[in-house]
């Protein structure tokens, strides 16, 4: 297959040539010296473009399938229930976009507007963007290496016409790879309020989430807090609890204590969540009084409070 140009965490960053991803990079010495390290002009363009976006939230997890997309979708649904709040949901899971299906927008297409791509609007105050809207058929695979994915993310941030937005929510794929580095790098100047980190209770998941937290600390991304998803299962027949994914090492609670980060809440396993997702509907409306919906609402409120209290600093330091 084709040779790929060498990617790196950003020549414009203070980490140039020093990040973990720079080890073994042929340009490491050059990058580290700072010589010729022209920052990608897109970073400034994105900052300009996103001036109309008040808050930016990343939804992250080191582990796959823990409910990042479900949470992102419901954070968007929940925030947009207030019709005075403008919400944008951006799906940067390029190889496995789930958001179109979860929002009931499968088969929608993106339109070109005067100033760029216009997102697909689910409601007047809820715009959505995903690579899923750019695919021809549900069988189309996006078999892309890093650099191409990075180009797509850059376009999503720079060329989508979001308009006036209160909250931009970014759903990510699992891990700490190209997509994550690109999102953080491209949003560096525009500033991210913080990351909501999703996990499930078992150690197989937590061990990956700890890596994600190390990543956040490495790239200086503030952590809003952790959501423990799929916590317990309540049998619909006998109402007794089971732990399908047992917290064998103390679950998210213990991890949050150890790492001194807030636990935003616990969402139980509820079969209706999967059904709502498959139908492309808001579970918050389908089952408003369920324990899971109540948990989601509590978490959404904490995130709103975080964003309210959180005053973005005036100007980022110019990167040199």
């Amino acid at each position: 297959m084709e040779e790929v140009p060498q990617g790196c965490p950003g020549t414009g960053s203070a980490q140039a040539g020093q990040g973990a991803s720079c080890q073994g990079c042929p340009n490491q010495r050059l990058c580290a010296s700072g010589a010729g390290a022209a920052p990608d002009p897109a970073i400034e363009e994105i900052k300009e473009k996103l001036k109309t976006v008040k808050h930016k939230i990343l939804v992250l997890s080191g582990k796959g399938g823990v409910g990042k997309s479900t949470f992102s979708a419901h954070l968007a649904y929940g925030l947009a229930e207030d019709e005075n709040t403008q919400v944008a949901l951006l799906d940067i899971d390029i190889c496995g976009p789930s958001i179109p299906k979860m929002m009931g927008l499968e088969g929608e297409q993106v339109h070109q507007s005067g100033s760029g791509w216009s997102p697909v609007f689910l409601e007047d105050n809820l715009g959505v963007m995903s690579v899923g809207f750019l695919l021809g058929s549900p069988d189309d695979a996006v078999i892309w290496r890093g650099p191409k994915k990075n180009g797509m993310i850059k376009q999503f941030l720079r060329d989508v016409d979001w308009g006036q937005v209160d909250y931009l929510i970014v759903d990510t794929p699992p891990g700490t790879s190209d997509e994550h580095l690109s999102a953080v790098q491209y949003l560096a100047a525009a500033r991210i309020d913080g990351a909501a980190i999703i996990t499930t209770p078992q150690e197989v998941s937590l061990q990956d989430v700890r890596k994600e937290i190390s990543f956040c600390r490495k790239v200086k991304l503030p952590i809003i807090g952790v959501v423990e998803n799929m916590s317990v299962f309540i049998c619909p027949k006998c109402k007794k609890e089971s732990q399908i994914f047992p917290p064998t090492t103390g679950g998210a609670e213990r991890m949050c204590q150890d790492l001194k980060i807030p636990l935003l809440g616990k969402v139980p396993l509820d079969p209706h969540i999967g059904k709502s997702c498959d139908k492309g509907q808001s579970f918050l409306i389908d089952a408003p009084d369920s324990p899971a919906a109540v948990a989601y609402r509590g978490i959404i409120q904490k995130i709103q409070e975080f964003c309210g209290h959180h005053k973005p600093k005036q100007e980022p330091l110019p990167s040199s």
């Binding site: 790929v4 060498q6 990617g7 790196c8 965490p9 990040g19 973990a20 991803s21 080890q23 073994g24 990079c25 080191g62 290496r145 890093g146 650099p147 700490t176 790879s177 190209d178 994550h180 580095l181 061990q207 700890r210 890596k211 994600e212 937290i213 190390s214 990543f215 490495k218 790239v219």
Partner: peptide, 15 residues
Amino acid sequence: NPDEAVVWRGPKKNA
């Protein structure tokens, strides 16, 4: 360190 994040872009992973 088991909590260390492997923050690698594509080319390094390929290698």
